[in-house]
Structure formats: C-alpha cells, structure tokens
Design a binder for these strands. Structure first.
Lengths: 240, 240
DNA sequence: TAAATGAGAGAGAACGTTCTCTCTTTTTTG
DNA sequence: CAAAAAAGAGAGAACGTTCTCTCTCATTTA
C-alpha cells in the first residue's frame, strides 16, 4: 500500500529458500534473516507514515508509531537508530516519489502536454489514501510536513535539496529541448520558469483539491492553461 | 517591527494619562494598566513569532519564548492561558495580514493589474524579516508552519478557514465585477479559478524566492503572465 | 494597604531512548 | 546428528530529559 512511496529494493533475487547456502556469507545478504529485516523495516515505515500523516513529524510519538506497527520500542530501535532517521527515510521516499513522476515527462512529445500531465499525475498520486479511511488522510499532508521540517532540520533540508535539484534538472532538460523545437519563447528565462512553475504546482498539490471535492479532471485544464501561459508568454502578454 | 503582523487594536483612544479616572471602571479598559497589559501581550507575541519562525510551533518551547521575551513563565502565563492560545493568535495575525493585502485589490481598475499587484505585494511582505538578521528568517516560514498546523489543530484550522473564506470572497467579488466588465471569459468557473489562483500564489509565497536571490521585480511578469492566462482562457477553463 | 505583577522553583506528564531479560533461530562443536 | 553455544529478535520496564503549566512568595503600583 505504501509501496507507492517506499523505494523498492532488490530483495527477491533468492526467492525460494536456498537453505543450503546458509553457511556461505551470501546468506547474510539474501537469506531469511535479511528478508525478514527488510519486511520489518517496511512495517515500521508504513506505521510511521500513517502516524506522521495523522499527527505530524513532531506530533507523532515513538510510542504512537510502535503501537501502529504492533511492536515494542525495543524491537523498533533494533531497526532504526532514532526518530530522526525515520523522518529522513520517509521524507526521502516521499520526495523521490515526486521525482519519479517527473521522469515520465519525456513520454509526451509536446511540452504543454508534458507539463499538464506531470501536474495532474502529481495531484492524483498525492491525493491517494496512504493507508486509511477518508480522503483527509492523503499523503499531500506529508508534502507540507516535509517542507516545514526542511526549514529547520538540516538532514531533511539536504534530502529536499537533492531531490528537488534532480527535478529541476529534469524540467530544465525538457524545457531546453522544447525551446530548441520552438515550443517556448526563446527569450524566456528557463531557470526562473522552472522555479516558478514548480512552486505553483506545489501550491496546488498542497491544497489537495481532490479531497475538497474538486476532481483531478477539473484541474487538467487549469494546468494546461498555466503551462500555455508560462511557456508561450509572447501570446499572452501581447494580449493587453 | 512585528506590528506588521499583529493586528492593531483600538488602544490609543485615551492617549495621555487620564490618571484621575483610575477609580472608574473605564480605567479598566483605557487606563495605564490596560495599556501595559497590551504592551506585554505584544512583547510576548513578538517573542513567540521569533521563536516560531526559528524553531516551528512544536519545536519552540515555552521556555524559549520566555527567554526571548525576557520574562518568567509565571509572568507569561498571566497573559496567555496556553501555548495553544499563542499559536492561534499568531496564526490569526499572520493570516489577517494576507487578507489585508487582498483588500487593496479594488484600488486597481484592471483585474490583471490587481492580481499581479496582490501577488507581488504578498511576496514582498512575506519575505520581509520578521525580527532579525538574515533573509532566511522571513515570515514566509510561518506560512508553511500555519498550513501544516492547520492540518491537525482544529483551532488553527478554523482560523485559516475563516480568513481564507474572506479572501475567497474578496477575490470572487473582484472577479465577478471584472467578468461583468468583460475582462474575464464569461464561461469561466470563477470558484475554481479563485481556488487555483490562490493555491498557485501560495506556492510561490512559500518558496520565498527573494531569499533565494530572485528579486520581487522578477516575479512581477510571472504573476502577470499567470493572471492573463487564467483570466482570459477563452478555450481552456470552461468547467461547469 | 490592597491589588496587581512578576520571578522562579518545581510538579507532573510525556518524550525519545536504553536496558535487561526471554524466547527463538542459527551456527559451532564433539 | 545431537548437544552446546552464539546470535538475533522482541517485550516492556525504566531512564534521564524536556515539556507545559502551576504554585508560592516577593515586589511594585495606585
């Protein structure tokens, strides 16, 4: 369920019990033990995400997370050294999810379509229920939480900067290509364009419109208008 | 300094010491005592804002606020019943500041100019230093903090809803008037337009571009392009 | 002098984390 | 292959710290 957010790791290589290999050191990496450890880590991260969405990074206590995971503190601390570490892991996973959506930009051959699609996909993904009942528990909450945390937590700030740098690069590459294809006004400042478009998109994502009754489909033309406006400014500015 | 954010209250009515009135009950409202109380409250709120910007709502402790205000806990709790109350007061003040910027929309006779101006004013105001040294301490941080808090704190959520409702109404009124003047495509869904424009603006405000080297002036054409695109879509935003 | 104000110790709860101990699984040894 | 030893996993009490908030008592003000 939260596989969506948590990055997959290459664990299913030795799928069936190669129990004979137990004396060899490879067992350390691919054996039952290791697989169980990863399962437990994921269990903890799932619980933590639920709690963080419900109560916030600071608001959720380790006991709350332990209860949610059905685990004692002693057990939990065997897998993560601190609350900080869990926060960072969750932040990174959540940010990476965004980056992955961006990676599919190149699938559209038209820059306006690409931007529109990224926006819509993003909103759709973020409004999905992470674990639970109502739409109020969507992972869009985590978006705000991560951003707030990044303002004071150095570790989270670094994680954000890393992922957002990658996202900026992806966007910039797509925009440069589009500019050369003549889809973007040649005088446009691409750096500024990327930064502001990203900020505007984030604003919409944080608002979590789907949870307020505005369906994702209704946002499609909004994103399209936005993309057209920002990518072909000559047309619009000349309007006046 | 933080008068910017804290709402003015009608205190300067009895400006010079009407000290003789101290036995009459009016003194309770306008006497030295009352004025001192307000001064102390403001001192506390200033300190709290500094701390909240530095450490976040949850991250800042009451002791930290007391130190910043140069005050003991016993003294502070004479003026505010709880940390919650301070958080709510600061949130309300910060949101009201936004609403005030919107109130000047009607000063522009052109809807695109008005939207552009509101956006620019907003960014400028939010990027101002609230109290201290670097641009990293701008009150834009509080914007994110308030939004995150509103997701779980019922009181803050109510405050946000109140102020944002007022802001929506102001925008909606301005847009309706513009629509009748023929400045906006008649098929546009104004409700959706207001909601998405506000969200996009918030996204830019939260990013606090001025603190990252992008001057407010550079954002002016961005806001203008955005406004033009969203307000004259003709073919795009025609939902409903 | 009576009321308002403030300082500061500290109560009581909650926090993140660690410690000790038990139970199970795996590895080594005879 | 069976017994012994080691390692791993987990539970839960307990630790020291920090939190918000209160209480007592001294000082200031009208």
């Amino acid at each position: 369920m939260v596989d969506d957010v948590l990055p997959k790791q290459a664990t299913n290589i030795a799928d069936d019990d190669a129990s004979d290999a137990s004396h060899c050191f490879v067992a350390k990496l691919f054996g039952k033990r290791a697989r169980n450890r990863e399962a437990q880590e994921e269990r903890i991260l799932n619980a933590a995400m639920t709690c963080f969405i419900r109560s916030g990074f600071r608001g959720a206590s380790m006991n709350e997370i332990c209860s949610e995971a059905g685990m004692s503190p002693g057990a939990l601390y065997r897998y993560f050294p601190s609350k900080e570490a869990i926060i960072e892991k969750i932040s990174a996973a959540h940010r990476q999810q965004s980056a992955e959506i961006l990676d599919r930009m190149s699938e559209s051959d038209n820059i306006v379509d690409a931007v529109t699609r990224v926006g819509v996909d993003h909103v759709r993904k973020m409004s999905l229920n992470a674990t639970g009942p109502g739409p109020r528990d969507s992972s869009a909450r985590l978006f705000v939480e991560v951003r707030a945390e990044a303002m004071r937590n150095e570790g989270v700030a670094a994680i954000c900067e890393l992922h957002e740098g990658l996202m900026r690069d992806t966007l910039l590459a797509a925009f440069s290509a589009a500019k050369e294809r003549g889809e973007i006004d040649p005088v446009t400042d691409l750096e500024l364009l990327v930064a502001t478009l990203a900020a505007m998109g984030e604003g919409i994502i944080m608002r979590n419109f789907p949870s307020q009754g505005v369906p994702v489909e209704a946002l499609e033309p909004v994103f399209r208008a936005l993309a057209e406006a920002m990518l072909r400014p000559t047309k619009t500015i000349a309007h006046k």
